[in-house]
Amino acid sequence: MSPLKRVAYFFGLPIVLIVLWWALSFGSTNFFVPKPFELAQTLWTTWIGERFFEDVLPSLGRLAVGLLFAIGLGIVLGLLIGSTRWLRNLLEPMLEFFRAIPPPVLVPLLMLLIGVNDSMKVAVIISGAIWPVLLNTVEGVRAVDSVLNDSCRSYGIRGFARIRYFVLPAVTPQIMAGVRQSLSIGLILMVISEMFASSSGLGFTIVQFQRNFAIPEMWSGIVVLGLIGLGLALIFQFVERRVLHWYHGLKEITHDS
């Protein structure tokens, strides 16, 4: 696809939707639904400036720390659990139990345990975002190819070298599939953790706007969240293409033949 075409595909639908929204809300006086231009203005005045540094950046910081820990811990624990049979048998039923608990209910609990601070919010993000990465890694380690495994063994590739050159790269497709889910879970939990007990952050601000009937501002907050999600997806795509170029190439070839 040519770059021009790609840009057209990327922006095509959003532009159509905005035009549609503009047409439908033309002449509308509904207090709860702002018009596109009005919203764009609000978006600019509300979020660019002081609020960006006081609410958006801290939120993003907590999200980043939470996600990094969730992904890192998920991979390390997943490799450990996946490659140790007794540990896997021991932990697997319990992991399913913990995973089944909806992380938002942990917010009040973590508030009591950790207190109302950044650590609590990061902990909430980790507690929800770790599962897809962790469980996918465990599953991936279990399913490594037996012939590749024999190759490693016959060449004496063991221990750390085995993890680094064989297991980790072999599991990367599953890890990345997990990371993709973790990103959206992390974003959701970032907002939720700020809705409960907080005096700053995106979640807090959006709820605050809603309570004060600052409707266009509230909408603009939702748009900001959407933009953050989009940004995460783009970063993910960028990283994934680099890390898994071999995987996509391999898949393309096996599909051709």
Binding site: L148, D150, T172, Y247
Partner: peptide
């Protein structure tokens, strides 16, 4: 250490990455 094996399944004995 001083033994090497070549397997039948070449597609699964080389590291694709």
């Amino acid at each position: 250490k001083s033994m090497a094996v070549v397997f039948q399944e070449y597609g699964r004995s080389l590291f694709p990455w």
